[in-house]
Design a protein around this nucleic acid. Structure first.
Ligand SMILES: [Mn+2]
Ligand SMILES: [Mn+2]
Ligand SMILES: [Mn+2]
Ligand SMILES: [Mn+2]
Lengths: 221, 221
DNA sequence: AATAAAATTTAGACAAATCTAAAATTAAAA
DNA sequence: TTTTAATTTTAGATTTGTCTAAATTTTATT
């Protein structure tokens, strides 16, 4: 149950990437980790060997249950240490990522849980990202713009960023309000516009500017 | 100015060992690090290459100024994290060493200095060992038994462990009291007795039992 | 002083993580 | 549907840190 720092970094990055796409590609992971595609392939073989992900050569990969659990523990450590650095050591929120990138690899589970208690079980890190609990559960989904949502993943509207009258009028027209169920069916790279299913209506086009202002959360299971 | 975890572990152990002997031996370091003499030799070559210690093959080794500075920074980190774990996270003093052994390798100097401030600049760690300041200075020497003192290193009596009347009578007889300057001139492995120079008098023999009860500190420079 | 024992170093190997250059596969364009 | 381009994997090397077994040097003992 204990993995090298490099393996933990890989697991964590895969977790983040697969949240945005279903399958992760070798090049995408290499870019995220600032390493080479060949090195990623090497590591994928080892992670598959240890049964932490599904992987077929040339076909992409994604974490399995074990891998996801491991990744979430690393994320938990990273975000708790970031919170500690900002709230207790008075670092700026923009100075802590690098340090947490090292601290997240300290292995003691007991340490993390005591740190969590010491900090008062914070819900989110200094960047607003949710901190999973000791069991790896995210109690709070991260709010994100509709533009960042993966295809065919059902989400619910949880907020509107820029609440201008023009914006609200448009949402009214599309029957979009807090709690409405949405599903992005298609993305057009030309102008970054989306085709979105709103409730049970047939899909309609939404511009990138509008999509960016619609804040959503993943649907609860 | 940044060394691998393994190099930091070696530097730290050499520092501790050379405090008790002048020169450190390959076998002693291997035992302290739970590794093999051959591995130690390999590492010594690298540390010498990086000009962190004096080393001639078959002759033993000791840190130079650079190496000592590096070692002290690791010790500072180790002891500050131990203090944090006990005082802030409620660990027992006997549970923290292993964890600190990992945390001492986090590299950010800024982090350590802020941690120090957050903890209120503690003078000693949970085991009573002194914590060097940001510049690497030990403000307080560690109190140790006369039996553990290296040959020819001038020390001063800072306390008596078991203050029985018999013990005090003996000390009186030898003109040993708080603040007396001592120098161990010779150690007899047969019964662990010492030949000790007391003030400016000619050396006299001190038994191991007595030596253990005489607490001393290194003489200030 | 010669010999035996202990300490230390070298030689050669291995695992982990990374890289470059070339080959294989898949996807895109003509 | 060929041809070209992009992606991914393999082959082979490199670095760091470690190990075992054998050789060397130092220390201790007859
Ligand atoms: Mn990391
Ligand atoms: Mn963060
Ligand atoms: Mn350590
Ligand atoms: Mn300690």
């Amino acid at each position: 149950m204990k993995y090298s720092a490099s393996k933990e970094n890989h697991l964590k990055s895969i977790f983040h990437l697969q949240h945005e796409q279903g399958l992760v590609t070798t090049n995408a992971l290499a870019a995220a980790l600032q390493t080479r595609p060949a090195s990623v392939t090497d590591m994928l073989k080892k992670l598959k060997e240890q049964k932490l992900l599904h992987y077929e050569r040339y076909k992409g990969f994604r974490l399995n249950n074990e891998g996801r659990k491991a990744a979430v523990q690393v994320i938990r450590k990273h975000r708790l240490w970031e919170y500690f650095l900002v709230k207790k050591l008075q670092f700026g929120w923009d100075e802590v990522h690098e340090i947490a990138e090292e601290m997240e690899h300290i292995s003691s589970k007991e340490l993390v849980d005591r740190l969590d208690a010491f900090l008062g079980y914070p819900a989110t890190d200094p960047h607003g990202d949710p901190i999973p609990d000791s069991m790896g559960r995210f109690s709070q989904q991260k709010q994100l713009g509709l533009s960042g949502v993966p295809l065919n993943k059902p989400v619910r509207v949880s907020g509107i960023a820029q609440q201008t009258t023009e914006m609200l009028e448009l949402l009214q027209y599309h029957h979009i309000h807090l709690g409405t169920r949405l599903e992005v069916k298609k993305k057009f790279p030309f102008d970054d516009s989306l085709e979105v299913k709103i409730g049970n209506r047939p899909p309609v086009a939404i511009s990138a500017q509008v999509a960016k202002n619609i804040l959503v959360k993943e649907e609860e299971k």
